[in-house]
Design a protein around this nucleic acid. Structure first.
Length: 285
DNA sequence: ATTAAACACCGCCATG
DNA sequence: GGCATGGCGGTGTTTA
């Protein structure tokens, strides 16, 4: 609980990805026995989920026999080929996608060029392929189609990750529970700075005493929680002063200071000049 | 790892 | 009334 004025529940996203990600196309089909594609190199990601039959996927010269329930992934810049079995050719759905966040997304669910196949793909994951295609074909609200089909593909990848939990890169690379909690606290500050934040409540919410929390936070970030919060608020205040016409009072309110006079004093300590002067100087170059 | 105690300072308000 | 000053209780940090 952060405020005395009301009770609420808060969930903060501590795993934000700075990523662009979009679906290019999606399809489903059944090649004839022995049909082969490649060896070739593409410049996008192409993921296939086998729903029946069998075939051979080759990535970087390494063979990966695939059958129902297997999902294999082609990576941009990595040579591959794949071929349907002669007597029992596979059927599969596929989706091509691109964007800077794609690699990280796949790594999160344990898929990489060194480990390009995930097994035990669920029926649910498979259904998302169909929903993706339907969104593209029906195109009911064209301006929403990109959002929708990319969302379905993400849901499909999530389902894929959940069906191979052992390979999920969990903890997002954190080396310890402490690190995870400290990062969570920093994320709370970064997203909630516009509201009153008591360091003690924040410490409580992750199960630490304020004294110990202050120590581990400072060890990790090089500044105390309070300093960190103030830096977030002041940097945002500078941005607002420069890029908006908000009054000083409104800027103060926007960065979590209820008392504009007090905000001005703090700002002066921070930047060496009062907010109004800061705005004037930055505006005239 | 945790906390009590001491210390520092913040945030707010009364006062002039 | 607007604004500086001082002071107080509580919050945050440091020490042990």
């Amino acid at each position: 609980v952060i405020s005395d004025h009301y009770e609420f529940e808060l969930a903060v996203n501590a795993h934000r990805m700075q990523s662009e990600f979009y679906l290019m196309f999606s399809g489903a089909g059944k090649p004839i026995g022995g049909h082969k594609i490649g060896t070739a190199i593409y410049d996008y990601y192409l993921i296939h989920t086998v729903t029946a039959g069998e075939g051979l996927f080759v990535c970087n010269d390494a063979p990966y026999p695939c059958r129902e329930g297997d999902t294999f992934c082609i990576f941009p810049g990595v040579p591959f080929s794949y071929q349907a079995d002669k007597s029992n050719p596979w059927e599969y759905s596929w989706a091509g996608f691109s964007g800077s966040g794609s690699g990280e997304l796949l790594r999160l669910i344990g898929v990489s060029a060194e480990r390009p196949v995930a097994s035990h793909t669920t029926e649910q994951a498979f259904q998302y392929y169909g929903m993706t295609r339907r969104a593209l074909l029906e195109n009911e609200y064209p301006s929403l189609t990109d959002l929708e089909c990319s969302a379905y593909l993400k849901l499909m990848l999530i389902a894929l990750g959940k069906s191979n939990p052992a390979h999920i890169a969990d903890g997002a690379g954190d080396r310890s529970e402490t690190e995870r909690l400290v990062k969570y606290a920093a994320r709370v500050i970064k997203t909630q700075y516009a509201n009153p934040i008591a360091i003690e409540s924040l410490a409580d919410s992750i199960g630490y005493h304020r004294v110990y929390f202050s120590k581990i936070f400072t060890d990790y970030y090089g500044k105390s929680p309070k300093q960190y919060l103030k830096a977030v608020r002041m940097e945002q205040a500078e941005l607002l002063l420069m890029s908006t016409a908000l009054s000083i009072e409104q800027v103060a309110e926007s960065v979590g200071y209820g008392d504009p006079l007090y905000f001005s004093k703090q700002f002066q300590k921070w930047s060496g000049m009062p907010p109004s002067e800061y705005r004037r100087k930055k505006r005239q170059g």
